[in-house]
Design a protein around this nucleic acid. Sequence first.
DNA 1: TCGAATTTGTGCGTATGTATC
DNA 2: GGATACATACGCACAAATTCG
Lengths: 254, 254
Amino acid sequence: MDQPSYVRIATDLRRRITVGELQPGARLPARHELAAEYQAAEGVVREATQLLLREGLLVSRPGAGTFVRQRPQRRSLVRSWFRERQAGSPFRQQMAEQGRRGSWEYSSDTMQAPAEVRERLGLGEPDGDRHDVMRTVYTFSSDDEGPWMLSTSWEPLSITKGTPIAFPEAGPHAGQGVTHRFAAIGVQVDAWDEEVWARAATVDEAKQLGVGAGSIVMVVERAYFAGEQVVEVADIIVPAESTKLVYNGPVGER
Amino acid sequence: MDQPSYVRIATDLRRRITVGELQPGARLPARHELAAEYQAAEGVVREATQLLLREGLLVSRPGAGTFVRQRPQRRSLVRSWFRERQAGSPFRQQMAEQGRRGSWEYSSDTMQAPAEVRERLGLGEPDGDRHDVMRTVYTFSSDDEGPWMLSTSWEPLSITKGTPIAFPEAGPHAGQGVTHRFAAIGVQVDAWDEEVWARAATVDEAKQLGVGAGSIVMVVERAYFAGEQVVEVADIIVPAESTKLVYNGPVGER
DNA sequence: TCGAATTTGTGCGTATGTATC
DNA sequence: GGATACATACGCACAAATTCG
């Protein structure tokens, strides 16, 4: 009784999967069968399989069964690269994938930045109720698989107000990306910074991304800099079960 | 009945937290109280709170209660930077933190690389049972908080065998890091590549890291390159609830 | 110091809804 | 349509940790 039963059962199931006794795609015995096999209640077996579902080793389909996941295929989201590797390399492929057919929806509005965003933008104290940021909410979808990335960006109105780029997705520079848009008003974006972590999805996020409640998402907090000035921050949410973030760079000082 | 009860309850609790009705550090009503309040069974309430536990909004202490988590403090693990920002900036702090007092344990052995590692190292087919990689398993601990990072690295023996750096943590170049060690045998490491995702921790990982079973970890698959040759790959595991990965770089072509 | 009350974690058994085959 | 399987929900019981008088 050192470990809870459901942990023991999960461990044994994981072992059976990794040694190949349960092949990818294979269906697990039904709950009541596993319960009999492990001499445990069905609820306990369920907790065990839930653990493995969250680990990404299993997938379940109501009415059909619980299956060993096929080699998890993750979309590679290339966040940085410092040189082109030769054709045919993984990088080429990933870049190509990333640029593949897809679409996005967005909506922009001005608002007063919440405290946490103020801090990231270096905004200082709010001025009454005055709106001081442009917020844009994006949903990115691939044509074949539906939504796969959510993003919310904030840009200080102190920089963009009255310029042609105030609305990120309107005007002559719509959809051109932060770097190009700010270049159009003479602001040279020269650096980025991303902080990555992960947590369970909120209900909203899970619904928008079409994943189960409580499944895992990665959060990328991005900032773009022009010198020491932060010109944009964004929160990017992707499902961890289907996405990898790819970073690469050179070794050594510069 | 559009959404399951436990999702509705979780949503309402999240709302009560975000609007400040439940302050950080505050204790939630006990299970049976929430059950009465929401007209649901205790098990359902438990599922709701588990959702929020995994989201990181709540923490529970057996016997004591369930509490709204204080502002989550995450250790910043700086994985890349391309220039020093001025003193006092977050980067300086993070770099300092990262270099702070800590310790690690390791063990090395030779083995035949498993298929997945072969692929990442570009090794080709195995030669009988012959050992072809040096595997080193690390546990990193901070002096005050115990283990916080696990790492397993693989280096091809075809490169290091018979050299002073064959054992990463022994010999004249012990503990110097991949770049310096390989430089010592004339191999110039010039690039790195990291792929990041997240999943639930395995039982082993959870135990080693001192976190709950099924809590979320981030996985970093790292590769070091010398030209087109992969000289080292590593899997790095950190608990998502207490760690951020930090990347940054320059904007534009080079 | 000790014991009683409280609270979470775990486990059991059952019932019902709904999707799949 | 019927059988099967998972998802959800209910209610109960007990162990272990904590709290507090």
